[in-house]
């Protein structure tokens, strides 16, 4: 058995009459990139928001890095959140702050007694590693969509997370920038030894970054496995159509 960093069992979540997650089971293994695929509105974002408890599940068991989420108090939950990097779908950069302040913000508030030099060093090194050293004094409104995504990733990396969640990292970007982002995701795994969940409906991104695929259909994971297993040998019409749509021949 491989070591799981996240275990999800029998997870349910609904909003009013809208049953979004209906019995989700999923494991994230140490060191892997797991790609979660699914139609728009299938509940992919809701799933990872539950994992960091931005939303509360209705039912279900979740264990992250050995901790049962339902047994944590707020302090323990915050401790756990620091080990998780969450790259938001729309980047969620603080738009009243410069890029530098965006990166410093989580750092200075969670790590006490850092010297100015240490902070600057960390910020500059991270901006280098996402390839945007020149943006340090810019405001988020002056950045392109792809740049924002990368700064968003840099901001989550500043606390050295063990687990990364990427919510549609390539959505709305041109194909060339997508390649950059895909490479960044792989590079983060190499450098930071993270285990990641990558949410996407872009199959190229899935194929390049993912070790395993999991397809969310009607509130459950219908197929989990390697790219070939899930797509090339797919029998479920939902999954098949997903594949055909992405690679129109």
């Amino acid at each position: 058995m491989r070591e799981s960093v996240i275990e999800i069992r029998n997870l349910y979540k609904s909003f009013g009459d809208n049953d979004v997650l209906r019995g989700v089971d999923l494991d994230l293994y140490k060191g892997e990139n797991l790609v979660v695929l699914g139609k728009s509105g299938s509940g992919k974002s809701v799933l990872i928001k539950i994992l960091v408890q931005l939303l509360k599940q209705d039912e279900g068991y979740i264990k992250i890095l050995g901790k049962d989420l339902s047994k944590l108090n707020l302090r323990e939950l915050n401790q756990l959140r620091l080990k998780i990097g969450f790259a938001f779908q729309a980047s969620a950069l603080y738009d009243s702050m410069t890029v530098r302040e965006n990166l410093e913000f989580p750092l200075t508030r969670n790590v006490k007694n850092l010297s100015r030099k240490e902070i600057d060093y960390k910020v500059e090194r991270l901006l280098d590693s996402v390839g945007l050293p020149n943006t340090i004094n810019q405001m988020p409104s002056e950045l392109s969509g792809g740049q924002k995504k990368r700064i968003g990733v840099a901001r989550t990396l500043i606390l050295n997370p063990e687990i990364m969640f990427y919510d549609e990292p390539t959505a709305g970007l041109d194909p060339i920038t997508c390649i950059d982002i895909n490479n960044l995701i792989n590079q983060v795994r190499e450098e930071y030894k993270t285990s990641s969940i990558v949410i996407t409906h872009d199959l190229t991104c899935a194929k390049v970054t993912g070790d395993r695929m999991a397809v969310l259909v009607k509130g459950q994971f219908k197929a989990v496995g390697s790219f070939e297993d899930v797509f090339e040998n797919a029998s479920d019409p939902n999954i098949k159509s997903f594949y055909d749509y992405n690679f129109i021949k």
Partner: peptide
């Protein structure tokens, strides 16, 4: 307006997940 736009662009969520 400021907090509203922070809310809808998930900046408030972003603070919460970085334990702020």
């Amino acid at each position: 307006a400021e907090l509203g736009s922070m809310k809808v662009t998930e900046q408030i969520d972003a603070m919460e997940v970085s334990a702020i």
